[in-house]
């Protein structure tokens, strides 16, 4: 059973009225990193996932989840 990481980063970020650049600055990464995480191209490290969750004021499980491709 193949699993992949899904995220609600785009949804939560836009709910809070943040641009990718603004979120990137809060977390201390490039805007490109935020973009690639949102698009599922890049799987963030635990540290980055936690920083994103903290910046958005959400538990990390509310932002990231495992979904089955089946």
């Amino acid at each position: 059973m193949a699993e992949r990481l899904a995220n609600r980063l785009l949804e939560v970020r836009t709910e809070q009225g943040l641009t990718q650049a603004a979120l990137a600055e809060l977390v201390g990464v490039s805007r490109k990193t935020v973009n690639t995480v949102e698009n599922g191209v890049f799987v963030p490290s635990t540290t980055l996932a936690l920083k994103l969750a903290r910046a958005l004021g959400q538990p990390v499980e509310a932002l990231f989840s495992l979904v089955s491709d089946d």
């Binding site: 990137a24 201390g28 990464v29 490039s30 490109k32 990193t33 690639t36 890049f42 963030p44 490290s45 980055l48």
Partner: peptide, 14 residues
């Protein structure tokens, strides 16, 4: 340091 850190973040290191 801040700009350099952003330029050399996880994605760039990968």
């Amino acid at each position: 340091r801040q700009v350099r850190s952003m330029m050399n973040d996880e994605v760039s290191l990968l």
